[in-house]
C-alpha cells in the first residue's frame, strides 16, 4: 500500500482527475456503488417532503400518531409501521439517511483534507516535522477507535453530532496521512520536483502545484473509504447508546428497538436501519475499491 504508483497516461491532454472519471464509468464496482448511493441520496431529499405531509404525525422526533396503539406493522399510512409510541418509522429512516450522509461525507472530507495536508507537508519537509507528525499518527492509530470514542462520549456527558463529527475526523486522518506521506517521499525525488526546486519556486507552491495533483487520486480513494468507516462507527456508537439523542440516526433507531424490547418482535423496525447502514457503507466502499483498481496499475487486468 505504501506506494500506489499510478501511471495513468501523463502524455494525454486530459487532467488526471478527468481520466479517472472516464475510467470510472467502466467499472462495475463504481457503477453499483453510485447506484446504491443515489437511492439513499433520494431518501435524504425525500425526508423533509415526507415530514411536511403532516408534521404532527411524521416528525421523526416529536410526531406521534395518536390513533395507533403500540407498535404496528407496515400500512398505507406508515410504510414501515410505527414504533411503540406511534412514531412513524419511515420518517425516522429518512432522517437517518440524512444524518448518515452528512456525517459520513463531512467526516471524510475533513479527515482526508487534514490527512492529505499533513502527509504532504511531512513528506516534503521531512526531518522533525515529519517525525513529530508521524509519531502523532502512530499514537492515534494505536488506540482502538470505538472504545476510545465511547470513553470520549462518556466524558462529554452529553452528545451531539458535531462532537462525533469532530472526534471521528480527528481519529481518521492518520491512515490517509501515512499513505500520502509515503507517496510524497517517492515523488520528492522525481526529476520534475528537483527541477522545480532549482528554478526557485517556493516550497508551498511546489506542494500545491506539483505534489498535490499527483497524490489526489489516492486521496480520492481514502475519501470514499473513510465515509464507510465514519458511517459504521457512528452507527456503532449510537447503537451502544452514545449517539446524539436530540436527533434520529439509524444506529439510534436500532437502539430504541433494542431498549424497548422489540428486536425479535418487530422485523419491520429492526431490519431496515441495519440494512441501510450496511448498504450505504457498502456503496461507498465499492466506489473506493473501484477507484483503487483504476489508481493502482498493478491491479489492472493481465
Amino acid at each position: 500500500m505504501e506506494t500506489l504508483n499510478y501511471t495513468l497516461d501523463k502524455t494525454e491532454k486530459k487532467s488526471l482527475i478527468r481520466q479517472i472519471w472516464d475510467l470510472a464509468g467502466r467499472s462495475t464496482f463504481i457503477k453499483l456503488g453510485v447506484f446504491i448511493m443515489l437511492i439513499f441520496g433520494g431518501m435524504a431529499v425525500l425526508s423533509p417532503i415526507w415530514i411536511q405531509i403532516n408534521p404532527a404525525i411524521y416528525d421523526p422526533i416529536i410526531g406521534v400518531d395518536l390513533s395507533v396503539n403500540g407498535s404496528v406493522g407496515p400500512s398505507f399510512k406508515h410504510p414501515l409501521g410505527t414504533d411503540d409510541i406511534g412514531k412513524d418509522l419511515f420518517s425516522q429512516l429518512l432522517r437517518g439517511s440524512q444524518v448518515a450522509f452528512i456525517l459520513g461525507i463531512m467526516v471524510s472530507l475533513i479527515s482526508t483534507t487534514l490527512g492529505t495536508t499533513i502527509g504532504l507537508f511531512a513528506g516534503y519537509y521531512g526531518k522533525i516535522s515529519d517525525t513529530l507528525l508521524m509519531r502523532l499518527a502512530d499514537i492515534i492509530l494505536t488506540v482502538p477507535i470505538l472504545p476510545l470514542l465511547i470513553v470520549i462520549s462518556g466524558i462529554f456527558g452529553t452528545q451531539s453530532n458535531w462532537i462525533i463529527l469532530l472526534i471521528l475526523s480527528f481519529t481518521f486522518w492518520p491512515v490517509t496521512a501515512r499513505v500520502i506521506r509515503a507517496q510524497t517521499l517517492s515523488l520528492r525525488e522525481r526529476p520534475f520536483i528537483e527541477s522545480a526546486k532549482v528554478s526557485g519556486i517556493s516550497n508551498t507552491r511546489i506542494i500545491v502545484k506539483h505534489l498535490a495533483p499527483n497524490v489526489l487520486p489516492i486521496a480520492f480513494y481514502y475519501l470514499t473509504v473513510t465515509v464507510t468507516g465514519a458511517i459504521l462507527v457512528e452507527a456503532g456508537l449510537s447503537f451502544l447508546g452514545f449517539g446524539d439523542p436530540s436527533n434520529m440516526s439509524w444506529g439510534m433507531m436500532l437502539q430504541w428497538c433494542f431498549v424497548k424490547g422489540y428486536v425479535f418482535k418487530a422485523p419491520y423496525w429492526m431490519i431496515p436501519p441495519g440494512l441501510c447502514i450496511s448498504l450505504l457503507s457498502f456503496s461507498f466502499y465499492l466506489i473506493g475499491v473501484g477507484l483503487e483498481e483504476i489508481v493502482n496499475p498493478r491491479l489492472k487486468k493481465r
Partner: peptide
C-alpha cells in the same frame, strides 16, 4: 450528484 447533495442539505 453534487446538486442533489446541496438540495438535500437545504431541505434539512
Amino acid at each position: 450528484i453534487a446538486m442533489i447533495f446541496a438540495f438535500s442539505m437545504l431541505c434539512t
